[in-house]
Design a protein around this nucleic acid. Structure first.
Length: 257
DNA sequence: ATGACGGTGTGGCACCGA
């Protein structure tokens, strides 16, 4: 089965591209971030017509997440329990597969702006709350995938300019420690289970020909639990949608298991 | 050091993203 994550930077603008991509890549699950629309504007009918069940947590203007799946989605959790969040950044649900139930945790992690800012403090708090929730969830759902836009470049090789950007947002030791803490729960970065091309990124700035010059970051991730690790057979970034007219600044990441 | 590009909401720009 295939599971994907894609920050679409406005589902209203990108719906056509999402439907085209799903038609060409009929994945079993697609996690979306940055919907930038309220639930009443969520294009449920169009997605159902494409053969997907969908659950969403939307918000006006910013944020917003959704899970799309071929199978019905149950046990839906919107927001991180116990973390009062004014922003729509998290949704979880379970699907049933031939191998058993599969728990899906989709996050649009906080950007954080700059170390020392209030937004950075919010990022740290959010990551702490996520860690606690993932720990609880793993105890109940051994087959678990945590995916989304993490807004963290885990290692130097995940940045087009690790030296120049050292200590800046997405590159700080604090963010990377939080990423490692998630791995320490027993999760594995599916992308790094395989040999990958150098300078593999999932986001490129719209400005200054970022994509054309491959000045990007790998900040969109798919983490799998230990129970799933052995069944992962591939993980790739699909750069093609970044070449579309009016693209999102992020590309989809796809895992096969 | 700054702004560049794109989306949104509003309004002739400011904000936010990464």
């Amino acid at each position: 089965m295939k599971i994907a994550t894609w920050n679409v930077n406005s589902l209203s603008v990108r719906l056509g591209q999402v439907l085209d991509w799903l038609a060409a890549h009929p994945v079993d699950v697609l996690a979306l971030q940055e919907l930038k629309l309220t639930d009443d504007k969520f294009p449920l009918a169009a997605l159902q017509e494409a053969g997907y069940h969908a659950v969403a947590l939307g918000q006006k203007t910013y944020n917003g997440v959704a899970l799309l799946a071929r199978a019905p989605l149950r046990e839906v959790q919107r927001n991180l329990p116990g973390f009062a969040d004014a922003q729509a950044r998290f949704i979880a649900a379970t699907i049933d597969t031939e191998a058993g139930p599969l728990r899906l945790l989709n996050g649009y992690f906080v950007n954080g702006q700059a170390p020392g800012s209030e937004k950075f403090a919010y990022k740290m708090d959010w990551l702490q709350a996520l860690h606690g929730y993932v720990q609880q969830e793993l105890a109940q759902h051994p087959r678990l995938v945590l995916l989304g836009d993490f807004n963290i470049a885990p290692e130097d090789r995940d940045s087009y300019d690790a030296e120049g950007l050292r200590g800046s947002i997405h590159h700080t030791d604090e963010e990377r420690a939080h990423f490692q803490a998630l791995l320490a729960l027993g999760l594995t970065d599916a992308f790094r289970l395989f040999e990958q091309p150098a300078k593999s990124f999932s986001w490129w700035d719209y400005r200054m020909l970022g994509f054309q010059k491959n000045r990007g970051l790998r900040i969109d991730h798919i983490l799998v639990s230990s129970a799933l690790r052995a069944s992962v057979s591939a993980c790739t970034i699909d750069r093609a949608p970044r070449k579309n007219p009016q693209p999102s600044d992020h590309a989809p990441v796809v895992v096969t298991l």
